[in-house]
């Protein structure tokens, strides 16, 4: 059985979503990927979905929800319920935040969406801390890659996912008070900003980083 993958990242091929997909599909013999950033192709993607039984959606959290391009596709899908009825679906939401709470509202909605579409919901998986997956050396992401590959394997074999696997991947809903206090110390030392500062400096924009161009309009 082959898998149709929807990469919902606005960055398309050059995305953290694509890295996650590469981990997931290790055991699949064949997969097809559609890029939802190509909004004009949404109708033909629905046509393509007809010949698949299993779907995978992977996208980043954008302002507490799915990227708008993904929502646009969902709206098109909802006008073709007959195409998606009884298909199996799995969603992976990833975000730069290291707590799962940011993605929980979207998880709730995706469950409702699968229900509206009468699809078979396999599960929603949340991956925190994804910003920069693309730039990390493989050893830094090895643990997450293994966890995601295990979920992919179960999905491929029609085995229900291990609840522990979902919990382990998600991490804490919110951090403990101790960890939050530790983060505050790192923040004071400027150590939590290094990833962004490096990019700001590279672009000669470091001095402008607090600019508020529309404050006097």
């Amino acid at each position: 059985m082959s898998l149709l993958i929807f990469n919902g990242s606005p960055r398309g091929e050059n995305s953290n979503s694509n890295i996650i997909i590469s981990w997931f599909i290790e055991e699949f013999e064949s997969t097809t990927t559609a890029y939802l950033k190509k909004v004009k192709q949404h109708e033909s993607m629905i046509e393509e979905a007809k010949s698949f039984d299993q779907l995978l959606f992977v996208f980043p959290l954008y302002v507490d929800g799915m990227p708008a391009q993904v929502k646009h596709f969902f709206e098109r899908m909802s006008q073709h319920k007959e195409v998606f009825k009884d298909k199996e679906v799995l969603f992976i939401i990833h975000s730069g935040f290291s707590e799962a709470i940011h993605s929980k509202n979207l998880e709730k909605y995706l469950t409702r969406f699968a229900d509206i579409m009468e699809m078979k919901m396999y599960g929603v998986f949340i991956i925190p801390g994804s910003e920069g997956f693309r730039m990390m050396p493989p050893r830094m992401t090895a643990k997450k890659a293994k966890q995601v590959a295990a979920i992919g394997r179960d999905y491929q074999r029609n085995i229900p996912f291990q609840k522990e696997a979902k919990v382990a991947l998600e991490g804490p809903l919110v951090h403990s008070k101790a960890k939050a206090a530790y983060f505050k110390i790192l923040q004071k030392l400027g150590l939590t900003n290094l990833y962004w500062d490096r990019q700001l400096k590279k672009n000669n924009a470091f001095d402008k980083r607090f600019d508020a161009p529309y404050s006097k309009m």
Partner: peptide, 17 residues
């Protein structure tokens, strides 16, 4: 639409960053 706010509003919100 499909149980959620419209993609037009979501587009507006995504560009708030």
């Amino acid at each position: 639409l499909a149980g959620y706010e419209s993609s037009l509003i979501k587009k507006f919100k995504d560009r708030l960053i």
